[in-house]
Design a binder for these strands. Structure first.
Lengths: 343, 343
DNA sequence: TTTCAACACGCAATCGATTTCGTTGCGATT
DNA sequence: AATCGCAACGAAATCGATTGCGTGTTGAAA
C-alpha cells in the first residue's frame, strides 16, 4: 500500500528542494530542462497528484459548487442537477450535493458545513419547512460572508440574489387553458397548501385561465392538499360525485393519484375527464394513458443556474452588484390524457 | 460584507496569540477563565466557524464520504443515497455525490478528484461502461493509496473490498416463481445484455425458476436489450404474436414499456398476461395496474454500505484486513399486475 | 584578473487551525 | 536570597502546495 506521494517526498528522493519540484512540475523555465525532466518522470512514476485540500487552502477557493436541494429522490431536482453538473464540469468546477430532506435544520447545517471552506458558492432550492417558517437568516449570512448564492425553483422573494425560476403562473394558466381549449368547462384543481410557493402560483394561473374564459372560479373544485403522504384519500373524497370534465394537478404525484381515483370511479381519461399535470418526469411519460403536462426544462434550468453562479464567482472585482432573475420558459407537452381519440 | 473571521483576526483584536484563542475556544483549562470568556464572547459575536479546509489539512481527514453512482436520475440510486446520508450524518460525516453518467472516463475523473484530498473513503457503484470495459485500475489505485472503498449493487468481483449487493439470482428466481405459481407457463424475459452484471444474474434466476418447475428454457422467450433508449421498438417486435401468459422484466422501464406494448396488442394485465418487474420505484407503485416487483430495499442498502465504510475508516489500526460482502434480502411486492381479479 | 549577467536553485512566507514545548511572572517555600 | 512550582500564555512546527525573492555558481566579456 503506497501512500499518497507529496512534493516533500519527491524532493527528498531527488535531493532537491520542494520549490524546485513544484516549479518543475509546472514547467517553470526557472528550472533546468534536465531537472524538469527528472522530476516529471518521477512524479509520473509515483502518480503524483497535488492535494486538493492544500490547494484550496492556498488559493482560498475550492472550485466546487455546493448544491442544496429539498429532496434527492425527486426526478425534477435530479434533472436540474444534471444541468448544473454539465456546466460546472465544463468550467472546471465540481459539485457537492446535499439534500435537506425538506428539513429546515438540516438545510441550515448543510449550509454552514459547506460555507466553512468546502464550497465557493451555492445553488439552493429551499426546503418546504424553510418556506413555511419563512426564516432565511442562514442564506443571508452566507451571502454576507461574500459567498455568491443562486436560488432556483423554490426561491425566496425577499432575498436579493440571482434566481432561476419558471413562470409558474403562466405554466398553470397554459395547462388550464389547454383543458378549456379542449372543451372542458368544469375543471378541478388539485394543488398544495399556499405556503408552497409554486403551488400557490400555479393556482393563480389556473384562476387566470378560467377568468380569461369567463368561467367563474368555483372553490368547490379546488383541493389544497396538506398531507402529501396520503393524498390518495383526500383526492378520493374530493372527486367523489363531482361533476367535472377536466383536472389540473400541480405535480406528477397528484396527477397519477387523481388518474387512479378517476378510474376507480369508472371514469375514463381523456374521454370522460381530461387530465393535465405539472413536471415532465418518468411518471407522466410512461403512465397509461400518458399524461399531458407542463415541462419545466430542468436541465436547462440547471445550466442557467450554474452559469449565473460561475459568472459571479469569476468576475474579478466586486464590479457592479447586479442580480438577475432568469425565467425559464415552460412548455406544454400534449399526450394521451388530453387527446380525445379521433382528435 | 463582513468576510469570514479567522483565529488570527480574533487574536489581533483581543491582543493575544493565536494559540490562546484556539485553546480558549476549545475550553482548555490552560487558559484563564477570564480570557476564555472574552474569546468565546468575541467568537460568538463574529460568528466564528473554523475553516474546514484548514482542519482537513491538519487532521489529514476530511470527514466526508465520496459517493460515485452511474446516474443520479435514477430512483433506486437516490434511495440508496438516502440511506447513506442517514448513517453518514449520524456519524458526523458528510456526503459528496458525483455521477459518472455511466461514462468510464468521468468515473475515473471523479475518483481522482475526490481521492486527492476531498474524501476519506468511497462508495461506488460502477458505470455501465466500466463493466463493459472491465477496467478498474482507478479503483484499485485508490484502494492502494489506503482509501477504503465499498461497492454496492454494480460491483466488480475481481476487486477485493467490502461489498453490498442483493441476491439478484434469487430475486429473479422469486419473481419468476411468483408468475409460475400464479399459473403462468409461458413466461417471457426482458433483460439486458450480459455485461450488465445485474441483468445477467436476474436472467440466471429466471432460468432457475423455470427449471425448478421443469419447464424448458425457450430462448425465443428471452429478449436481451442492447439499446435502452429505444427499448420500446425492441419489445414491440419481440412480443408481436408471441403466445405468452407472463412477463418478467428486469427493471422498471422494461416493465412499463412491456405493459404499454401489451396493451396496444389488446392484451390486459393481469388477466391475459401477468407482469413482474424489478426495483420498487415510483413507476411500479403508481402505474395502472400497479406492478408487482422485486424490492431491493435501497435505503437499507445505503445504510449498510455507509456503515461498512465508516467502520473501515474508524478502525484505529490497520487491524485485520477482512472484507465482507453483505447481501441484502430482496422481497417480492405483490400488486395488481399479478393479481387476477377475484383471487 | 576582475566583474557581471544569466542560470538554477533554495529559503521562507503564506493559507487557517492545532498542539507541543517552551517561557514568562509571581507567590510561596526553605 | 535563592529556588521551586504553578498559572497563563506565546513561539513554532505541522499539514501540502505555491511563489517572490535572495543567493551561489558559472561562463564570458572587459
Amino acid at each position: 500500500m503506497k501512500q499518497k506521494v507529496t512534493l516533500k517526498q519527491i524532493a527528498k528522493e531527488l535531493d532537491v528542494s520542494i520549490s524546485t519540484v513544484s516549479k518543475a512540475l509546472k514547467g517553470s523555465k526557472e528550472i533546468s530542462e534536465d531537472t524538469r525532466q527528472k522530476v516529471k518522470a518521477f512524479a509520473k512514476l509515483y502518480n503524483y497528484k497535488p492535494n486538493n485540500i492544500a490547494l484550496s487552502l492556498k488559493n482560498r477557493k475550492t472550485k466546487t459548487i455546493g448544491v442544496i436541494i429539498p429532496e434527492i429522490i425527486h426526478h425534477f431536482f435530479t434533472t436540474v442537477i444534471g444541468g448544473i453538473e454539465k456546466v460546472a464540469n465544463a468550467n472546471g468546477y465540481n459539485v457537492i450535493i446535499c439534500s435537506s430532506n425538506n428539513s429546515f435544520d438540516k438545510e441550515v447545517l448543510n449550509m454552514e458545513l459547506l460555507a466553512s471552506g468546502s464550497a465557493d458558492g451555492f445553488i439552493i432550492s429551499v426546503a418546504k419547512e424553510t418556506q413555511q417558517k419563512d426564516d432565511h437568516h442562514h442564506i443571508l449570512e452566507t451571502m454576507n460572508q461574500g459567498m455568491p448564492v443562486v436560488m432556483f425553483d423554490r426561491v425566496i422573494d425577499e432575498l436579493i440574489c440571482d434566481k432561476v425560476i419558471i413562470d409558474d403562473v403562466r405554466g398553470g394558466q397554459s395547462a388550464t387553458s389547454h383543458l378549456l381549449l379542449n372543451g372542458c368547462r368544469r375543471v378541478a384543481l388539485i394543488t398544495t397548501v399556499d405556503y408552497i410557493s409554486v403551488g400557490k402560483l400555479r393556482t393563480k394561473g389556473y384562476k387566470r385561465a378560467l377568468m380569461a374564459y369567463d368561467i367563474e372560479v368555483d372553490d368547490d373544485l379546488i383541493l389544497k392538499i396538506e398531507d402529501v403522504s396520503n393524498c390518495s384519500d383526500s383526492i378520493h373524497d374530493f372527486l367523489k360525485d363531482k361533476d367535472i370534465d377536466g383536472v389540473f394537478a400541480v405535480n406528477e404525484l397528484f396527477a397519477v393519484t387523481a388518474a387512479r381515483v378517476l378510474k376507480n370511479q369508472g371514469k375514463t381519461i381523456p374521454e370522460d375527464v381530461a387530465l393535465v399535470g405539472f413536471t415532465d418526469g418518468i411518471l407522466s411519460k410512461h403512465f397509461i394513458p400518458s399524461l399531458s403536462t407542463v415541462s419545466q426544462h430542468g436541465v436547462q434550468m440547471g445550466e442557467r443556474t450554474a452559469q449565473l453562479l460561475i459568472d459571479k464567482l469569476e468576475k474579478n472585482e466586486e464590479g457592479i452588484e447586479e442580480y438577475k432573475t432568469v425565467i425559464i420558459d415552460t412548455s406544454l407537452i400534449q399526450r394521451e390524457s388530453t387527446q380525445k381519440k379521433g382528435n
